[in-house]
């Protein structure tokens, strides 16, 4: 490969990673925007999402990479798996909010955040104990279609991940900007007390944020499986921390910030892996996290929210 083709290849890889990180980062940002809560359980909602997607695909008779589908059956199976996964993780997120976080809503300090760490470990261990520690082969029904672009290779699954991620993010942006509930979400993020006095039911807004964020994490979990052909109880931790960094980089609380931040972290990961060394990727990503927190805590698109009293 020529140097320029190599670079292009890493950009392509980075965009695929970035799409996943963006989907995951949106969940951090939506919840933080409304509750000023960093939801660490989100890491493992993503992980559970990839298992749910795996089970749904297996339910449709797929196993490993042996069964290849094309045309309508392929779209139908992937579409159904995506919808079921998103619905399931969305409900998981709502359940986490309803039963573990809502009772702590008005408790000051880091209590709710620490609770989310606890929930994260519960999800982690439930999957570990019921499914096992070994890496699972993730069913992938996509035919091996490739295109050569400027010496680099783009696979069908990458194009699919980009396209679906883009559509999901546009839908989210549309929802937040245009719908009545989306506007209530923005109003609550900007001034919770005033929003309440307009008649906004805060619980509904919070549930919506958890549902949407967790559903997007589920989609991200499914894409992880399709991209890497495996899943494991361990995947939430690394991907979650990188996506969290993406949310902070973009400006936590900002929806476009999470999207851009995710893509940037994906590119940084793939390019630093190519030109520095893969094992240094995390050092670089988390150094960025530290640098943002020190020098520009509001991130690229964020504003420093006034601390709730």
């Amino acid at each position: 490969m020529t140097p320029s083709a190599l670079f292009l290849q890493q950009v392509i890889n980075g965009l695929s990673l970035g799409a996943m990180y963006s989907l995951l980062a949106l969940g951090f940002t939506l919840v933080y925007g409304i509750l000023e809560l960093i939801n660490f359980s989100h890491f493992n909602v993503f992980m559970v999402g990839s298992f749910i997607a795996m089970w749904v695909l297996q339910f449709f008779g797929l196993s490993g990479q042996q069964v290849i589908l094309t045309g309508w059956p392929l779209l139908g199976v992937l579409g159904a798996a995506l919808l079921i996964t998103m619905l399931a993780t969305g409900l998981l997120g709502v359940g986490i909010e309803r039963f573990s976080l809502r009772p702590l809503r008005n408790v000051p300090g880091p209590v709710a955040m620490i609770t989310t760490i606890g929930i994260s470990y519960i999800l982690f261990n439930v999957i570990l104990l019921t499914v096992g520690a070994e890496t699972k082969n993730f069913p992938n029904p996509l035919p091996m279609v490739k295109w050569h672009v400027g010496g680099a290779v783009v696979e069908l699954r990458e194009v699919l991940i980009w396209a679906i991620s883009l559509v999901l993010m546009l839908l989210l942006q549309f929802f937040v900007q245009r719908s009545r509930l989306g506007k209530a979400m923005r109003a609550t993020a900007q001034d919770p007390e005033a929003a309440r006095m307009m008649g906004v039911e805060v619980d509904r807004v919070v549930i919506t944020a958890f549902f949407l964020g967790s559903a997007l994490a589920g989609a991200g979990g499914m894409f992880f499986g399709l991209y890497y052909n495996f899943t494991s109880f361990l995947i939430g931790y690394t991907a979650g921390l990188r996506a969290f960094t993406a949310a902070v980089l973009g400006g936590i609380g900002s929806v476009p910030g999470a999207m851009v931040g995710g893509v940037m972290i994906g590119l940084i990961e793939s390019l630093s892996g190519q030109y520095i060394a893969v094992r240094w990727s995390d050092v670089i990503i988390f150094s960025i996290l530290v640098l943002i927190l020190v020098f520009r805590p509001a991130g690229l698109f964020g504003r420093l929210a006034p601390t709730k009293s």
Binding site: R180, K183, R186, Q190, D191, M198, G199
Partner: peptide, 16 residues
């Protein structure tokens, strides 16, 4: 709501 438009603020007034 400082980062919403004036029109959106009015919409929020009619939220119920």
């Amino acid at each position: 709501f400082p980062r919403m438009t004036v029109y959106e603020n009015l919409e929020m007034g009619a939220y119920t």
